[in-house]
């Protein structure tokens, strides 16, 4: 779970609530972490938001297809101060470019979110106004699938309550009041991310395999798919050693695995694997 937040005042309630700790030494941006979450404080503006998103990705593992959320405050013409909105359309006012974060979480208030270069005080459209989302979204969707990249904003100002009245304390209060809703949203995205974290994208083959046989890059890709198939079709019902014991090189391993899998009789059945599946490859003993 990765959070991108513009201001320290927006970040502080999240840091406290989720028990995040500041990383040292500090680099380009300040990063806070727990085992399951990382937060970067980007500073104000879409360029900094895009840069901080990239920086956090570069400094982290497990970023692919993880939830990436931009959390902060925004103004809105029609929504009360203190309400939480999820952006279903992000517009970069300076370029008129739009993005449409797919909305899979039900029972949230959605709004168009317009990213402006200077604070918007006249709220010309029925939309929320912020200064980061149009930088964050295209950057974060290079790390993860769009469904898991979301901007959620607490409304901090509107035509009845000026942006000029905001200070660090009031911003912290606005975020704090919405922590429960923010956490629910985060949890929902986490559940969705588990569903697609099936492939060990950066996984390397077990060390014992590398010692025993060598595989080219192409063979490695093929091997991973064969092992996935093994997990689905055969599972723990048979050991890989029984099939691979006599193999002398990587090519023979692939041939033997494929032959064994292709001999498996097809049956109509649903996938039985649940949860964070196939995070590891089936093991084989080294000789």
């Amino acid at each position: 779970m990765f959070l991108v937040v513009a201001l320290q005042a927006e970040a502080q309630p999240l840091i406290t609530h989720f028990g995040l700790r500041c990383e040292s030494p500090m680099g380009m941006f300040r990063i806070y972490r727990s085992e399951s979450m990382a937060l970067v404080v980007s500073g104000v503006g879409k360029s900094l938001s895009a840069a901080a998103t990239g920086y956090l990705c570069g400094c982290s593992d497990g970023w692919r297809n993880a939830p990436w959320i931009n959390i902060g405050i925004a103004g809105h013409r029609n929504v009360d101060v203190g309400e939480l909105i999820v952006a279903n359309k992000i517009v970069d006012q300076s370029t008129a470019h739009s993005w449409y974060p797919p909305q899979l979480v039900s029972n949230v208030v959605n709004s168009t979110l317009i990213t402006v270069d200077k604070p918007e005080e006249s709220y010309p459209e029925r939309a929320a106004y912020d200064m980061e989302a149009a930088g964050f979204f295209p950057s974060a969707t290079r790390c993860s699938t769009g469904e898991l990249v979301q901007s959620i904003k607490v409304i901090s100002d509107n035509p009845h309550q000026s942006i000029a009245s905001l200070n660090a304390r009031s911003i912290e209060q606005l975020i704090t009041k919405n922590l429960s809703e923010i956490e629910q949203f985060i949890n929902r995205l986490s559940e969705l991310s588990i569903e697609i974290k099936v492939l060990p994208h950066n996984g390397s083959l077990p060390e014992s395999w590398a010692k025993r046989w060598s595989f080219s890059v192409t063979q490695g890709h093929r091997l991973r798919r064969l092992l996935q198939r093994w997990k689905v079709l055969i599972g723990d019902g048979e050991t890989l050693d029984s099939v691979l014991g006599a193999c002398k090189d990587g090519a023979a391993v692939l041939t033997a695995l494929e032959a064994r899998l292709n001999a498996e009789k097809p049956t109509y059945r649903r996938s039985l694997l649940v949860g964070p599946r196939a995070s590891s490859l089936p093991d084989v003993q080294s000789q």
């Binding site: 993005w99 797919p102 899979l104 039900s106 993860s144 699938t145 469904e147 569903e195």
Partner: peptide
């Protein structure tokens, strides 16, 4: 602009 964008996951979208 919605349908053909990159960075979409058919499996997740099928949920809603």
């Amino acid at each position: 602009a919605v349908f053909n964008r990159k960075s979409q996951n058919f499996r997740l979208q099928k949920k809603n």
